[in-house]
């Protein structure tokens, strides 16, 4: 097995062990907790927080991916071509908008809880997926398009059988970037009462309990890395299916 594969498995096993049997790790964290304070977060089980964290990300990113792909398809058709310069400029503008600002601005509109976080994750998730889908769809070479036309394909067939399959690896890379940013923003969402692993970090900061901060931090980081690696494997599978060479990973931020 390659070293990367061993590292991935070890990360997965350690994270699962920590989530399911946190008491095993308590002796290591003991020195970080102030005396008479709990070592392991006790207001909710860590595994339920991790699941809720992942559910938030999935609930926001799946609709985000569908809408962003639909929009990218729309602006690359002749009927929507007039919106192409605007949408390109908007992607550039939108990326400068910090995810925390989106989260904070959603609170006044929809109140506290899960909703502002979901909205922020959904909106912010649109940009990387749209950008990558656009790059994928406009990157299909002229020769390939001509060949498809020559085979007598209708515009619909060309989209389904040629353009979308060729753009798929890049679109998955976009989903990967969005999902990693979403894991990060969902953690910050705990400041507005969303249920995620960020809750553990924030409880630790408020109570001055470094043990909470460190276990929440490690688990949140592990969750992000697992999501990143898992979607990386999906993207690689999509590239392999097309016989494309492996591409260097795109840059997440958050």
């Amino acid at each position: 097995m390659r070293p990367a594969g061993v590292l991935r498995l070890a990360l997965l096993a350690l994270t699962a062990a920590f989530l399911l049997f946190p008491a095993l790790f308590a002796p290591m964290l003991r020195p970080l907790a102030p005396p008479n304070m709990p070592v392991i977060y006790d207001r909710a089980s860590l595994s339920s927080l991790a699941l809720s964290h992942l559910a938030l990300v999935a609930a926001a990113i799946i609709p985000s991916a569908l809408l962003a792909s639909a929009l990218a398809i729309l602006v690359t058709r002749p009927a929507g071509a007039e919106f192409l310069p605007l949408s390109r400029a908007l992607v550039g503008f939108g990326q400068t908008f910090p995810p925390v600002a989106v989260l904070a601005l959603a609170v006044p509109v929809v109140g506290f809880g899960t909703w502002p976080t979901l909205i922020a994750l959904f909106l912010y998730g649109l940009l990387p997926i749209f950008e990558n889908a656009l790059a994928g769809l406009t990157g299909v070479s002229g020769a390939v398009r001509l060949a498809a036309d020559g085979m007598g394909m209708t515009p619909g067939q060309k989209l389904r059988r040629v353009e979308l399959p060729l753009a798929l690896p890049l679109m998955i890379e976009g989903v990967r970037i969005s999902a990693v940013i979403a894991v990060s923003t969902a953690a910050i969402g705990s400041t507005v009462a969303a249920r995620s692993l960020g809750e553990v970090i924030i409880a630790g900061l408020n109570a001055n309990n470094l043990s909470f901060v460190v276990q929440g931090g490690l688990l949140t980081a592990a969750l992000a890395l697992i999501v990143y690696e898992a979607l990386g494997m999906v993207a690689e599978a999509a590239r392999n299916r097309l016989g494309l060479p492996a591409e260097p990973a795109s840059r997440p931020a958050g």
Binding site: L32, S184, I188, G217, L218, T220, A221, A224, L225
Partner: peptide, 13 residues
């Protein structure tokens, strides 16, 4: 890839 809030918190140690 590490979420900001996690890295900020863990660096306290």
């Amino acid at each position: 890839t590490i979420p900001s809030i996690a890295l900020f918190g863990m660096l306290i140690l």
